[in-house]
Every structure is written in C-alpha cells, then in structure tokens.
Nucleic acid binder design. Structure first.
Length: 204
DNA sequence: TTTGTCAAGCTGAAAA
DNA sequence: TTTTCAGCTTGACAAA
C-alpha cells in the first residue's frame, strides 16, 4: 500500500499532475503526501483507498485525458465523515495526537487527513468570524458617524442661540443652580448660587 | 465559461 | 530539531 502510494505520488508530482509546485523544487520529507488517497483511475473513476468508492463524473474529461499519466481526483469526504468531524470540532477545535488518531481510526481516514480537515475548518471559522466582525464594526462606525452628525447639528443650533442668563439656553436646574453655556469657551457651565461655576463638559 | 468550495500542498513562525 | 499551527496557494469539482 505505501509503496503504491509513493509510486502514485511520484507520478503526480513528477508529471505535474496538479498540486502545489514547491518554490524550492523540493518536498519536505516529514510531510506525508495525501494525494495518494486514490489509485490511478482506470476511467473516470477514482477509488478512495482510505474509505469508499468515489462516484465517477461523466463531465470529468480531464480524467480520461489524464488516464495514461495518472490522475489526481479530489477527495470528497462522505456525509458521515463530515458530520462526525463537525461534531468533533464543536467539542474541541484542536485535537491532541490521541484524539486525532482515534478520530482517524473511527472515520477510516489518515491522521494527517483529520489534521488537515481541522486546520481548514479553523481557517474557515476564522474567515467567517472576521466577516462578522467586519460587519459589526461597519455598523458601529455608521452609528458613531450618525451620532457625530447629530451632535454637530445640535451644537450648531445651540451656538445660533444668544447665550446669556436671560437666553433660552439658560436652564434652571434648581433653586440655587443654573445650567448655561459659557460664551467664551463653549462649555456647559453650572452656575451655583454665589457664582461657584462648575464646568460640566466640553461641547466641541 | 466563470465562480465558489474544499482537500491538500508549501512556507514560516512559535513552542516544546 | 521536531511538531504544530496559521496563512496562503493550487487544482479538482460542482453549480450557476
């Protein structure tokens, strides 16, 4: 089995039958290649050596074209395999070696395949989350922008009013305190009895 | 034909 | 040094 796999891999890589072309023209040795999950297919049919037969597709012309050179069929995980992986992912998004091996045995896959599935699954999750975050930030930005516009408008309206003790802007807070706007610094000011002014907050 | 999805390839960084 | 992960890329395949 492993000899056959090496042979197939060699064919696929050597003949350029798809797959990543290493920049340095060399494959890392401790990285097992999994393109070998399929035998060289006779005609439009690939056999998943790890699991079950993969359906052939009539539209798969490239397959027949590549018959003589060997072919690389895409592995499709079965529904059962996918759902079990999903369930496992819900429990823990990363696996320790023992869990990985157990899951691989259970699914009749290689540990590397399980590992790759989890890596890709995490990437997809992150991508989705990034998209969600982006939408949320966009919304927040819009809200802040609207609020900023509203406040600017309000400020303009306030400035348009003549500020002073007798102006409409001068709000009676209590018998002893009055809220007014300082004409020099544009700040809301609380006027207490005896002229103890307390600045409240800047308005610009 | 184009586009989207997904398994699997590689690289580089971090941790043990 | 080895292992594991994230990130990016490739190629097969299906659907539009």
């Amino acid at each position: 089995m492993e000899d056959a796999e090496e042979c197939i891999t060699g064919l696929c890589l050597g003949l350029g039958m798809g797959g990543y072309v290493p920049k340095k023209g060399k494959q890392k040795e401790n990285r097992p290649v999994l393109d070998l999950a399929f035998e060289l297919c006779p005609k439009g049919e690939a056999i998943n050596l790890n699991h079950d037969k993969v359906e052939s597709t009539d539209s798969d012309n490239s397959n027949t074209n590549n018959n003589n050179k060997g072919c690389r069929k895409k592995l499709r995980l079965s529904k059962d395999q996918s759902s079990m992986l999903e369930n496992s992912f819900k429990l823990h998004t990363t696996l320790n070696p023992v869990q990985k091996q157990a899951l691989a045995d259970q699914l009749n896959l290689k540990t590397r395949q399980v590992e790759v599935w989890f890596q890709n699954r995490r990437a997809r999750t992150k991508l989705k989350q990034t998209e969600v975050d982006r939408e949320w930030l966009k919304k927040q930005c819009q809200n802040l922008s609207d609020e900023n516009k509203r406040l600017k408008k309000e400020l303009q309206e306030l400035r348009a009013l003549k500020v002073g003790p007798s102006s409409p802007l001068c709000i009676q807070l209590s018998k002893t305190a009055t809220l007014t706007m300082c004409s020099s610094c544009d700040k809301l000011v609380k006027l207490n009895e005896g002229n103890n002014n307390i600045g409240l907050e800047g308005t610009n």
